[in-house]
């Protein structure tokens, strides 16, 4: 059971109108693995990530999470039918997601943000949800901001709170969509530290990022995307040391100066 990859993506296609954003993407993420996705903007990285928890619908191919098809079910004849809202919600709740623009709930305090999922989705007792919430908030170093509203926090603090909110659902995997791209440079480090600690604890992570340092040091494998396709998928040593694809080499030359 633990041998099968947690996330399996096969032949994924996604269009926005006539624009093909994903053109047959296939890869796997093993349990406990950290996969970094890099590539030029518009290459389909974020769309791919959003297909994993079905925030974006895909038109062809399959996403399997823990051996379960995401967003669709197969009928007797093997055709893909839209899955029930309930099943989609259930699989989403098992994947935490962290967004570029944090997306904390502005009308709720840090603690309220973190316990919202456990309270409303998992229907946990308030005392239990709060205890878990406080522990997670301590883990991301925001204990003194428990009762603060998001608008009173720095970008780095907001993103750490957002990570705690995602972790509160006790997810089996975490998806990060350019988590540091909206941050002032001096605040990037504190967020990466939290992510690095999470990776060290064995969390399965898929991270769309422009932080090449993070991809190099923390990721087990790095996936280079361009124009809706995987250009190269390899351990960081190969991607950064001896890329096979000239497109990877060219991209890295540009971002690493």
């Amino acid at each position: 059971m633990s041998e099968t990859p947690l996330i399996q993506v096969r032949g994924l296609h996604k269009k926005f109108g006539k624009l093909e954003v994903l053109r047959g993407v296939s890869f796997e993420v093993k349990r406990g693995e950290v996969l970094a996705i890099i590539g030029p903007s518009g290459s389909g990285k974020s769309t791919l990530l959003r297909c994993l928890n079905f925030l974006e619908q895909y038109e062809a191919g399959e996403v399997l999470f823990d051996n379960t098809l995401v967003g669709y079910r197969k009928d007797a004849a093997g055709r893909m039918m839209p899955d029930s809202e309930r099943n989609i919600r259930r699989v989403r709740a098992r994947m935490g997601m962290v967004f570029q623009s944090f997306n904390l709930f502005p009308h709720k305090t840090v603690l309220e943000n973190v316990i919202e999922g456990p309270l409303v989705v998992q229907r946990a007792p308030r005392a239990e949800a709060e205890e878990r919430g406080r522990a997670l908030i301590a883990r991301v170093g925001l204990t003194d901001k428990l009762a603060s509203y998001p608008a009173k926090l720095s970008g780095g603090q907001q993103q750490r709170a957002a990570i705690a909110r995602a972790l509160a659902m006790q997810p089996a995997a975490m998806l990060f969509d350019e988590p540091t791209s909206a941050l002032d440079p001096e605040l990037v480090g504190e967020v990466l530290e939290v992510m690095q600690a999470l990776a060290a604890e064995g969390m399965t992570m898929v991270v769309v990022t422009h932080e090449m340092g993070f991809a190099r040091q923390v990721a087990d494998r790095v996936m280079m995307m361009d124009r809706g396709e995987i250009v190269e998928l390899a351990p960081p040593a190969q991607i950064f040391g001896a890329p096979e694809s000239p497109r990877t080499a060219e991209f890295l030359r540009r971002v690493l100066h």
Binding site: R89, R92, F99, L104, F105, H107, A168
Partner: peptide, 30 residues
């Protein structure tokens, strides 16, 4: 209300009704 709000609500497993009632409408009402 920014689309990111409903994305965030969905990502923690909320349904349409829950997201409306607890996340979108409380902000929209203001």
């Amino acid at each position: 209300i920014d689309r990111g709000q409903s994305d965030a609500a969905k990502s923690i497993g909320m349904g349409y009704g829950q997201a409306m009632r607890r996340i979108i409408l409380p902000q929209a009402v203001r």
